[in-house]
Design a protein around this nucleic acid. Structure first.
Length: 272
DNA sequence: CCAGCAGCCTGAAAGC
DNA sequence: TGCTTTCAGGCTGCTG
């Protein structure tokens, strides 16, 4: 499931291959989630950026194409295999194909179709509520213990729920939230998190996100990068997916609960 | 305005 | 063996 480190890994791989490429014909799956891909036809990609878990393709006509990978989305650039774009011929689960000048295709695959594509005027995100209200990038200087504390201090919701909302900080999903809360010693259901603990949590969020990028992302099921390779960060996880195993800090048996309909793993001894 | 939750999706794995 | 059920979960949009 692509979170910030996975999306950033893909961005770094795709960007050099896409900047200054002109998009020719485009084909897209009939779902309204993917049809906006067609609106990028005839433009040139001027940059490829990331905000939280969103990829942002800057287009030279004043628009941006936003891509969210959902649970199972992936991008690749492959040699064009057809004279005309036809997603049925390039393989299963292909949701959009952008023909690029030079005889290659940018291909978006998404098994479960939780992903989404949109084209909007540059910087206008009012139709994308999560992006419009997104908090600071975790690795930026704007994200600090103070900013985190300010964002969560008035809410009575569980701290993990707040992290997943993307408002206190951008790009943190289920895996990295569990890992950061474990390293900070904070119970995922805790709602009141004081300034000192926010200082710690902000730092552990920065740590797990940076490590995830260094490791090329976490592959537990479907995630592959733009080269088709799996990440290696799954080997660095302390709690996610390890319920029933001993905590590697104290030996207590790790537990799994359901919080906001998401599997949440934590150490009942280390996290309070 | 916010909290809570159904709905979207498919394939792998578990259950019968 | 083969069918059915369960599970994985980010975001959107609706309801109270």
């Amino acid at each position: 499931m692509p979170e910030l480190p996975e999306v950033e890994t893909i961005r770094r791989q795709l960007r050099p291959a896409l900047v200054n490429r002109e998009i020719g014909a485009v084909d897209a799956h009939s779902s309204e989630k993917f049809q906006p891909a067609l609106e990028a036809a005839g433009t040139t990609i001027t940059d490829l950026r990331r905000r939280g878990k969103y990829l942002i393709f800057d287009l030279d006509d004043g628009h941006e194409m936003l891509a969210h990978l959902g649970m199972t989305g992936s991008f690749r650039i492959d040699p064009s295999t057809t004279g005309s774009p036809d997603h049925e011929r390039v393989g299963p689960h292909v949701r959009a194909v952008w023909q690029l000048d030079g005889g290659e295709d940018l291909i978006f695959r998404d098994i479960r179709r939780f992903g989404r594509l949109r084209v909007v005027p540059a910087g206008e995100y009012e139709g994308v509520p999560t992006l419009a209200a997104m908090g600071p990038e975790p690795l930026s200087d704007d994200f600090t213990g103070a900013s985190l504390h300010h964002a969560v201090k008035r809410s009575t919701r569980a701290i993990k729920t707040q992290l997943l909302s993307q408002r206190p900080v951008a790009g943190v999903g289920n895996i990295y939230a569990d890992e950061a809360l474990f390293l900070a010693g904070i119970h995922p259901r805790r709602s009141r998190v004081g300034r000192d603990r926010c200082d710690t949590l902000a730092q552990t969020i920065k740590d797990v996100i940076a490590q995830g990028i260094d490791n090329g992302g976490t592959t537990l099921r479907d995630y592959v990068d733009a080269a088709g390779d799996e990440g290696s960060n799954q080997h660095a996880l302390h709690v996610y997916g390890r319920a029933g195993e001993p905590c590697d800090q104290c030996g207590e048996t790790l537990r799994s609960i359901v919080l906001d309909a998401r599997t949440t793993c934590f150490c009942p001894a280390c996290q309070t």
